[in-house]
Amino acid sequence: MMLTVSRLSAGYGQVQVLREVNLTVAPGEVLCLMGRNGAGKSTALKGIMGLVRATGGEISLNGVRIDTLPAYKVPGLGIGYVPQGRRLFSELTVAENLQIGLAVRGHDADRLEHVLALFPRLRDRMGQTSGSLSGGEQQMLAIGRALCVEPAVLLLDEPTEGLQPSMIALIQETVLKLRATGVATVVVEQRVDAALAISNRITFLVNGRSADTVATRDMSPVDPLFARYVGI
């Protein structure tokens, strides 16, 4: 499914965070959102999920507007979300967290098996509360829970934040596998090497506005755009 965000404005109460954000992501494509702290990257993903109400602009999925829907109806359209900081239901078990994801589009044992095949370590932790997992396992569960939705569009907010290199490699490998299966992915990423490794394009956000969008095949880790927009 094609996700299109046009001139999206959104914020929290009186505080306007997004001012005309534009982005598109096609099936089998990974779009990376980059920018300095407070640029509006996480808010853009929350805006797509309906968790932050849009005050202007449009969000559409395959040409059908979704920004007018209540937030709880958005995941049912096939949009999976991995929030920043994972936001697992910490007192629920791994199995219960996955059940919450599965319930979005009706319980499906095959989908659960697919997720457990991607992250076999979760299979051994099914009865454990998610708050007691290691950071890497929590991130696997956060992504696994989102994949239980069987998403056509996947939104990942800093999925490699605070993880050890082996875990970062696993997460990147998973994103690439999903890309190969046709999932459209929007990922917020602070690390240049990770952004270049997994994404097809990068959209830079500046003060809540989308600035340049560049194909990653034309970029190197020392591209001046990173210094300009991310400060690296």
Partner: peptide, 22 residues
């Protein structure tokens, strides 16, 4: 399942909405 939904909402209502919970 209804109880699970209630407990999930208790723990994090924003994330609950992001997983289709009304």
């Amino acid at each position: 399942r209804a109880g699970l939904v209630m407990r999930a909402t208790q723990l994090d209502r924003e994330t609950a909405q992001a997983f289709g919970i009304n």
